[in-house]
């Protein structure tokens, strides 16, 4: 299993251990997260990568207690390591005072679609100042000045004028910057970004990535980035966790996981996308079939029915195995893949 002794690591910002979140609908149960463990460190980016429906967004919603109704954290723990010592988030009331103090101030989030996440009837400035009003003791003038500063540091031109404008006057990239400005307004220790650039063009995406890299470097923010794009992982991540059907199938430092993937799903993901610069003759290999019905999951390895390396043992659930101090994988045959890589 994973190492359960985090120890007094001053850089540790959040640790999630064996998290199980179930969602209920029509008297059926979707085990959306089925034993997920990972750590987020200050000044590092953890990328969570996987296809739609694999539980990436449920992970983020669990951490912030923003889960939909009829779903709950069944087991496991989410420990936030703040300035005042560790807090077990899963034990806090969803909308209690403690949770509201953490959500937004200590752990902030950027959502996928900046058009729906911003409120169209309030100005951008109001939406930034609202955060400062709730979470800080700044006066009215100070809040206004801080809102302008934040917009300026996000690279929005003419912030004195733009602060009074409404979201529809902003372009997609500027809206996403405004979202980041709101998220960063209270200097959170952790920033959770759920597919922050999926709705944006690549050139605008590059601008947002540059901004996130700067935040990580200069303010030591811990970033958890949810994505489906292996390219983004290679570009931004320090650590990566690959998810499939509510489990982390492989996790470790980005260099180890991308250069030496040990889980067949990680390999399949990397082989299924054309990579720029490899020309027309590259082989791409589609993953056959589709993800199983979440309400009717296979009992064994979740990936088995699409896996090329399937053996009889895969009818049983493989355990998470630590292959090095930081690299872990959930596959029965990882030893063979390691031996292959060593050759």
């Amino acid at each position: 299993m994973t190492d359960r002794t985090p120890g007094p690591d001053p850089e540790l910002a959040l640790s999630v251990r064996d998290l199980k979140t179930y969602i209920y609908a029509n008297n059926r149960c979707n085990r959306a997260l089925d034993g997920v463990s990972f750590d987020i460190h200050r000044g590092k980016t953890l990328c969570i990568v996987g296809e739609s429906g694999c539980g990436k967004s449920v992970t983020a919603a669990s951490i912030l207690q923003l889960l939909p109704e009829l779903s709950r954290i069944e087991e496991g723990e989410i420990v936030y390591h703040g300035a005042e010592g560790p807090v077990n988030i899963e034990r806090l009331k969803r909308n209690g005072r403690r949770m509201r103090a953490i959500r937004g101030k200590e752990i902030a989030m950027i959502f996928q679609d900046p058009m729906t996440a911003l409120n169209p009837v309030y100005s951008i400035g109001f939406q930034i100042k609202e955060m400062l009003l709730y979470h800080t003791r700044l006066g009215k003038r100070a809040r206004h000045a801080k809102a302008i500063d934040l917009l300026r540091s996000m690279g929005i031109p003419l912030p004195e004028k733009r602060v009074r404008e409404y979201p529809h006057l902003y372009s997609g990239g500027m809206r996403q910057r405004a979202m980041i400005a709101i998220a960063m307004s209270c200097d959170p220790r952790i920033l959770i970004a759920d597919e922050p650039t999926t709705a944006l063009d690549v050139t605008i995406q590059a601008q947002i990535f540059e901004l996130m890299d700067t935040l990580k470097r200069e303010q030591g923010t811990a970033i958890m980035l949810i994505t489906h794009d292996m390219g983004v992982v290679a570009e931004l991540a320090d650590d990566v966790a690959v998810m499939y059907m509510g489990q982390i199938v492989e996790a470790g430092p980005v260099g180890q996981v991308l250069r030496n993937p040990l889980h067949p799903y990680t390999r399949a993901l990397l082989e299924s996308i054309p990579v720029l610069g490899r020309g027309k003759n590259q082989q791409i290999r589609a993953i056959p079939g589709q993800t199983p019905d979440p309400y009717d999951r296979p009992t064994g390895c979740q990936f088995a029915e699409r896996c090329r390396y399937r053996v009889d043992a895969c009818a049983e659930m493989p355990p998470e195995t630590q292959v090095s101090s930081s690299h872990r994988v959930r596959c029965w045959r990882h030893r063979e893949f390691m031996a292959d890589a060593a050759e």
Partner: peptide, 20 residues
């Protein structure tokens, strides 16, 4: 240069275009 490439050995300088 703006396209994220899933290849750690092919990291190049990111040319960031200003504005929209």
């Amino acid at each position: 240069s703006a396209i994220p490439v899933a290849d750690l050995d092919r990291k190049s300088e990111r040319i960031v275009l200003e504005g929209d």
